[in-house]
Write a protein that binds this DNA or RNA. Structure first.
Lengths: 250, 250
DNA sequence: AAAATTTATTTCACAATGCGGAAATTAATT
DNA sequence: AATTAATTTCCGCATTGTGAAATAAATTTT
């Protein structure tokens, strides 16, 4: 297609959106023929695009063959909302903790098998640990990640182990399935976890989980420091800050 | 592409979804280069797909060139939710009203310049007015539609008039901009509206608006009857039922 | 402030992928 | 059981999505 005007767009995406709109107009699941008529698309085109939307979770096909919007739409919408809220709510607490401990405080959320760093509070000193917002780290080499695995239970830990094969990042990385299982379960019971140079040599970390008012896991909070500066007495402060943030979440 | 296996999908849709997911992973607006790297797509491909998503409201580009999820996602998600909820909540009340008046009760939502019938309660008598669920009617020829225009204010009524040119459906249709304006504003002030054979000869209607707890317009409730059977004393019942439904909405 | 580098945007030839017509299959109605 | 309607699958083809290159804009370095 010659893109002769800047608003030309991509036909199949426009069509997919038109189909989503058509479905959205019906409070109850709707048939292929209706959608085809509403959008003016050939039935087999309609069928193909719907299948793609189904594969991607934007549409669901019911056993009777009718179509309705899929939960992926809610998930994406909610993600937009909640991650912004989480960050705004957590930031003042993180800054306070940073000022008290003099080290970097990180806020993370989980995406599949990795942690994503979504906010940070960095101390005003030259040497400090710092993760770029947006960067990612495997679950098994981070304190918060190990807690999240622990929260998921033995089955999930085994599944994660199988999927990832526990690649080693340093000589301290827990690459043994058994060791990881024990560490995650132990950490989860304690309510905090440590990262002892498992992701990067010379970097130590203390992490806790953040939950919302229904108890659902929302993210993680951690303090990262050069390993020789890390103090175990900070654990209580980190736990307390995590609790304070959790208390603010709806 | 040869569709050799049923799960093959449509490449560009998969890519668009991957981009939405990539954006959703970031709590703050994200740059083209990052999205390109995250999805493994060439930058110009990324750029083109994003433009299409922007045109369709799924993504927004900020003045600084960064991208974030667009409100269309929330709208679709919310639409899925609220129209299902509305129908389930309203139905018992509609059935009660139907049984009291002995006529058809309709539930409608607005879609741009038309009303969509999303639920009905039909009386157990041979001759009755009935609109097919899913069918649509122009705003200006329906009682609820006129209320919705009235709720939008003078500016919106004029805009609607310009867009649609007020096509006549019967000799009673209000095709004069001035008459429609007056009727909508008057109806809105009264809290109910009538349809006097404006959509179809011999059909009369009484309609009210339904709002949620924040006062936002959610839909409309109406009673349709053969014109000679319609009684103005029903107005109070319709208003009351509309209020009862509105009171149930979160 | 100027130059260098990086990032974003636009253009366009081309072949891969989305298209829709036809046929096959399944489901619903008579 | 026969008929009709709807959905699904198949596949040749040309339109449309692609990515490389060019250009423009923004950012960083000197």
């Amino acid at each position: 297609m010659k893109q002769t005007d800047s608003g030309a767009g991509i036909q199949v995406i426009d069509r997919a959106v038109a189909l989503l709109d058509a479905i959205a107009r019906y409070p109850e699941p709707v048939r292929l023929k209706i959608l085809s008529a509403e959008t003016g698309l050939h039935t087999s085109t309609t069928h193909r695009i719907l299948n793609s939307l189904i594969d991607n979770g934007f549409v669901e096909r019911l056993p009777n063959g009718h179509y309705r919007l899929g939960l992926r739409l809610l998930q994406l919408g909610v993600r937009l909302h909640s991650s912004l809220d989480l960050r705004a709510i957590a930031l003042p607490f993180m800054q306070k903790l940073r000022d008290k401990l003099g080290e970097t405080v990180n806020l993370t959320i989980r995406e599949g098998d990795v942690l994503v760093y979504i906010e940070k509070a960095v101390p005003n000193r030259m040497m400090h640990v710092q993760q770029i917002v947006g960067s990612r780290a495997p679950l098994h080499v981070t304190a918060v990640g190990k807690l999240m695995l622990g929260a998921g239970g033995e089955e999930e830990i085994r599944s994660y182990t199988q999927r990832t094969n526990l690649p080693a990042y340093t000589r301290n990385t827990l690459s043994s399935p058994q060791k990881l299982l024990e560490e995650c379960q132990s950490a989860y019971r304690q309510g905090y976890a440590l990262d002892n140079e498992e992701a990067e040599i010379d970097v130590g970390c203390i992490g806790v989980l953040i939950t919302d008012s229904s108890g659902s896991l929302v993210g993680g909070l951690s303090v990262s420091a050069p390993i020789e500066r890390r103090r175990l007495v900070w654990v209580e402060d980190v736990i307390e800050t995590g609790r304070a943030i959790s208390a603010q979440l709806g």
